[in-house]
Computed example of a mutant assay.
Amino acid sequence: MAATSAPIKVDVGTDQLISHAAHFLGKAKKDVVELAVREYIETHRSEINEGIRAALSQLDGSSASAIALLTDVPVDHLQEYGGMPSGH
């Protein structure tokens, strides 16, 4: 299977940093970004896992808890935004 890529947007200053790093490292910009992101994620893995555990602890299997988590609206406030269909 061929690797696919997805565009990302960064500000002009960050793009210049990536361009300079790629030039002086003799790498493609996409390779610099990929390595930087992987390194960043590895460095912050425990924080990411902590966030995942916190998110999972908020889920109780209901649609309301999933919507509350995704929207950052407490379950008891969902009614203010139209509520949930009955049976959810």
Results as ranks from 00 to 15, higher is better:
residue 1 M to W: 08
residue 2 A to S: 12
residue 2 A to V: 10
residue 2 A to M: 11
residue 3 A to V: 13
residue 5 S to I: 09
residue 6 A to K: 14
residue 8 I to C: 03
residue 8 I to P: 03
residue 12 V to Q: 14
residue 14 T to Y: 07
residue 14 T to N: 08
residue 15 D to I: 03
residue 18 I to F: 04
residue 20 H to S: 13
residue 20 H to T: 15
residue 22 A to D: 02
residue 25 L to E: 12
residue 25 L to Y: 10
residue 26 G to I: 01
residue 28 A to D: 14
residue 28 A to V: 06
residue 29 K to A: 07
residue 29 K to G: 06
residue 29 K to C: 04
residue 32 V to Q: 03
residue 32 V to A: 06
residue 33 V to F: 06
residue 34 E to Q: 15
residue 36 A to L: 08
residue 39 E to F: 10
residue 40 Y to W: 15
residue 43 T to R: 15
residue 43 T to I: 11
residue 43 T to D: 15
residue 43 T to M: 13
residue 46 S to Y: 07
residue 48 I to F: 12
residue 48 I to Y: 11
residue 49 N to W: 14
residue 50 E to T: 14
residue 50 E to C: 09
residue 51 G to L: 06
residue 53 R to A: 15
residue 54 A to S: 13
residue 56 L to S: 13
residue 64 A to G: 00
residue 64 A to E: 03
residue 64 A to R: 02
residue 65 S to R: 02
residue 67 I to N: 03
residue 68 A to M: 03
residue 68 A to T: 00
residue 69 L to H: 02
residue 69 L to K: 07
residue 70 L to H: 09
residue 76 D to Q: 08
residue 79 Q to I: 08
residue 80 E to I: 07
residue 82 G to W: 00
residue 83 G to N: 02
residue 84 M to T: 05
residue 86 S to V: 10
residue 88 H to P: 00
